[in-house]
Design a protein around this nucleic acid. Structure first.
Ligand SMILES: [Mn+2]
Ligand SMILES: [Mn+2]
Ligand SMILES: [Zn+2]
Ligand SMILES: [Zn+2]
Lengths: 145, 145
DNA sequence: TTCTAAATTTAGAATTATTATAAACAATAA
DNA sequence: TTATTGTTTATAATAATTCTAAATTTAGAA
């Protein structure tokens, strides 16, 4: 998924922002993650490499990426914090409100849905939040006791 | 939309909760609103009728409704707070991150999408969050200056 | 290189939505 | 009635996010 990392960094540059080591690392971590991470998750992952990294920088970079429209803000998943998705191709996200994991599932209908909204809404669209939530198979088992 | 109000109240009762005046009013306000309100919006609307209403009661009731699966938590819309939707029929929500309003738009594809996820995910589904965000036509005009 | 100005990062404080707590209150039933 | 359980309320606590101002870095000019 090297393509997405560069997509994020070039988007920031196109928006007039400088590319710093911190921003590059945040873009890379977000683009290469399958986990739909939160700001804190990215911060924890990058702290070993940037021992003076600030959470504010993570938040600022994520906010910029969302505002540009190249990252989607999916919202909470049972935990109190916002999860982000660098994959803006139309797809369905599936969140477990018990273990707070979010996975992707393919769907042939989302692309059509996306086309429909894009062409008929009249809105200047920035992003999407297509997320179903519930209990994953593992957490369902744990609840049976 | 009198049907939905009763759906909410009977759901709470079926879950073993008592029906109180506060809970009934919260269900009614949520079901009759087109605004996808936040907890604070419901609180402000009901305070004239219940001058000792507590925000905690609103939050507790909303949480119960979401946990039962009869109300969807859509997440934030530019403001920092969670918006709720008592309409659990598959549909697309469209949020403006400038004026923070959320509207519904019809789509023929969402129902199929919903069927697909429901039957193939393996999750015990509780709710959905199908929301596109961007700038509404009015806020687009305001930005051109 | 050195200097300057603008952008960025950082640490920490402030904000604020949400949750937890415990006392007051209301409903149910023996 | 009395006991018991559930509910609401006011308030405190929590914690995610945002704000602020100082320190640092960057880009470009001299
Ligand atoms: Mn995803
Ligand atoms: Mn809706
Ligand atoms: Zn799970
Ligand atoms: Zn608007």
């Amino acid at each position: 998924m090297q393509i997405t990392t560069e997509r994020l960094t070039t988007s920031l540059k196109s928006a007039g922002m400088r590319m710093t080591p911190q921003r590059a690392a945040i873009c890379k971590a977000l683009a290469e993650s399958e986990a739909h991470p939160t700001a804190a998750m990215i911060y924890d992952e990058l702290r070993p490499q940037f021992d003076s990294l600030s959470l504010a920088t993570v938040y600022n970079t994520l906010e910029a990426l969302v505002k540009i429209g190249v990252v989607n803000a999916l919202g909470g998943a049972g935990d109190g914090s916002i999860h982000y998705d660098a994959d803006t191709e139309p797809h369905v996200n599936l969140a477990c409100i018990s273990c707070n994991k979010i996975i992707d599932i393919p769907s042939s209908h989302v692309q059509q849905l996306d086309d429909e909204i894009t062409s008929t809404s009249g809105y200047k669209l920035l992003g999407a939040r297509v997320l179903y939530y519930g209990l994953c198979p593992e957490c369902q088992k744990k609840q049976e006791n």
